[in-house]
Design a protein around this nucleic acid. Sequence first.
DNA 1: TTTGTATGTCGCAAACATACGAATAAACTA
DNA 2: TAGTTTATTCGTATGTTTGCGACATACAAA
Lengths: 110, 110
Amino acid sequence: MHAKSAEFTPELQDLAALAKVLSHPARIAIIQLLSEQKTCVSGSIADSLPLSRATVCQHLQELKNAGLIRGEISGQNVNYCLDPDNIQRLKTILSTFITQLNEPLNCECS
Amino acid sequence: MHAKSAEFTPELQDLAALAKVLSHPARIAIIQLLSEQKTCVSGSIADSLPLSRATVCQHLQELKNAGLIRGEISGQNVNYCLDPDNIQRLKTILSTFITQLNEPLNCECS
DNA sequence: TTTGTATGTCGCAAACATACGAATAAACTA
DNA sequence: TAGTTTATTCGTATGTTTGCGACATACAAA
C-alpha cells in the first residue's frame, strides 16, 4: 500500500484492500471456483485458467495473504478452500458499501 | 489491462475492472462523498482528502473514465455527481457476486 | 487588461503488479 | 536410491499506478 493510503479511515482502507484483491479476473475466478467446489486442488485450478502455474500460484498466495482462502497439503497436492469467516467479512463489507449507495442519488449538478 | 486479462470471460473482466476502480481509498471516499451530497464541487472534494489537487484530479478522471461520476462546469467551478445508471450497474454486479458466494462453503479440505 | 481563483494536464520518479521460465523443495513410486 | 509428479519460490522483464510540482486554461472581478 502506498504511504498516503494510510491517511484514510480504516474502513476505507479495508474496502480498498479487498477491492484490490478482486481487481484481477484470475483471483475472482479462483474464488468462484472454490465457492462452487468444482475443485480444491492447486493444479486443477491452474488448468482452468489461461495462465502459467507460476502465475496462478502467485494469485493463490495473494488470496491467502488476504485471508480469503486457505491451503492444505495432501500428499503431493495442495487443496485450497475458501475461509468462511473472511469470505463472510468480505460479503458484509461489500454489502455495507452497496447499501450506503442507496442514498438519494439526485444531485442537482446533473 | 494486461493482455492476459482479455482471456477471461467478460463478466469477470467487468467485475475486476470495477473492483480496480474501488481499489484506492480516495476513489471510494469520493463516491461516498457524492452519494451523501456533502458537496459536488471539485475543490471541496480535494480539500476533504489528504492528497494534492493534482492527484485528486487524477482520481476524478479515473472515476469519470469508468463512468461512475460526471462533471459539469458551473462558472469557475466544476460540479461532480454520481452517474445513477452506472452506479446502479456497479451495485448489481457487486450484489450478484456476493450472492454467488452464498454457495455451500463447506469444503472438505479445511 | 490585469489579477486572482479554480481546474485540469504534463512529465517525472518511485513503487507496485503481472507474467513466466528456471530453480527448488517435498512427496510419492518403482 | 533414482526418477517422477506437484507445488512453490526466485529472478527478471515489462507495464501500470500513485503522487506531486510545474505549467496551462478558463473564467471572474477589479
